[in-house]
Nucleic acid binder design. Structure first.
Lengths: 238, 238
DNA sequence: CGATTAATTGATACTTCTCAAATCCTGTGG
DNA sequence: CCACAGGATTTGAGAAGTATCAATTAATCG
């Protein structure tokens, strides 16, 4: 019933429930009209690559639903997950604005719906609407701060501490299901690729956390049982 | 002869030799006038802290000469150097724009001269000059990409690889003196705090690089002898 | 020039990685 | 819906990489 696109993504940006989350939050009707006219709805199956490291994107994606991971490939071809993104997040703008190739790949870790906004429309809105540029800048600045934290963690914390930290970050980012599990399904390898360790090491430490009743797992479902102690292990104060 | 300020920093931004390096590069005369009127010249002695992690800055610094390091304190109070900045770089804007406290401290590793621009002037120029905002955004986006690289390095490379990488980065950032030494003087501890390792480990690996004739050191002076092999060790391809 | 701080080296303990093998799970096709 | 193949997860053992502590020497700064 109905076409596949309109079911998942509203045709007009002004109707989008995620607008207040995104960099488009305080655009005027005129700008929203223009965006809506030029945007295309796209969907990605779980596992599908949305952007390839090293490419030059011709537009940006505004995520509407689903979850994606941004990652870089290290020297040995190992994937390093830099961050996750979800509804409201803008994807690809970094490359367009710094006129560099894409610094990392993005792939869907869940079925994902997004709006594709071509480069030209994106820049038109930027040109016409300084407030929009400021919104993006604000988000970029926030992200710079987050990446500083990650760098410090990677450089100074043990794998165990980082694992605990990541679990808390996952909960903060994606929340919990009704059963209390983290609302995201990751392989052990992906977890290791966030923490920055070998898959086996991640597995071993997850087992330890289970033995200590800090978490509970069933397959890829993870439930945090004792966030307070987890925070202590993670050495997180904020 | 003359007052101390004008010797080191021109009174008017339009006369500043670093302007083309900075986010102010394509501002009009009017904006430059306004900036010049409101700016203050400041100087920092080597070692002096310019901004404190957690503070709320009331303006930005535009570096005119000298070198500074941006660092965060880890859980154990250990300093993690995130990046260096030098002439033309803008300092403190991240915090102002994301309305967060400062994510890291900044201190001078050389005698440093800078122009201080109060928050209000900074925002006036932003409001009036979208191009300026775009310049900053472009720089922020570039920095996001660099930090992604650092994260991947820290997560996947060995200390030895990272040390080699850092030495190359230092050369690219600060260049060499006439004698061929890196044009920056750092303690072994500071090097370790960039690499993300213990001071003793950094020292040991530096000694190894010396034994292999990849570098040469005399006190804090470091000379790169074989960048090609160093690049190979660092696993750097770009 | 003396007093501190920085740099170096050694010994040892601990953390983490790698390789290998066994078991478990998941998605797919019948 | 079930069985199966292939990938994912788990555990073990040993090797390698790093950190820590301690002691000594070198460098730097007032």
């Amino acid at each position: 019933m109905g076409n596949d696109h309109s079911v998942e993504v509203p045709n007009h940006c002004s109707m989008c429930g995620n607008r207040h989350l995104s960099a488009f939050k305080n655009l005027g009707d005129e700008d929203l009209d223009q965006l809506s006219e030029m945007k295309t709805c796209v969907s990605f199956k779980k596992g599908q690559v949305i952007m390839h490291e090293g490419a030059r994107p011709q537009g940006v994606y505004c995520l509407h639903s689903g979850k994606v991971k941004l990652y870089k490939l290290g020297a040995e071809g190992k994937e390093q997950i830099i961050r996750f993104m979800t509804k409201g997040d803008l994807l690809g703008y970094r490359s367009l604005l710094s006129e560099e190739t894409i610094s990392g790949s993005v792939s869907a870790i869940d079925d994902t719906y997004a709006c594709y906004i071509p480069k030209s429309s994106f820049f038109q809105v930027i040109q016409k609407n300084p407030k929009f540029t400021l919104n993006i800048l604000e988000k970029a600045c926030h992200e710079l701060g987050e990446m500083g934290k990650i760098i410090t963690s990677l450089a100074q914390k043990t794998v165990r501490e980082r694992l605990a930290e990541i679990l808390l970050i996952l909960r903060a980012t994606f929340g919990e299901t009704e059963e209390g599990n983290l609302d995201i399904s990751l392989t052990r390898e992906e977890i290791a690729n966030m923490v920055g360790t070998a898959t086996e090491s991640a597995i071993r430490l997850i087992s330890e956390l289970k033995e200590d009743s800090l978490i509970e797992t069933k397959g890829r479902k993870i439930k945090i049982l004792d966030a307070t102690r987890l925070r202590k292990i993670a050495n997180v104060f904020d």
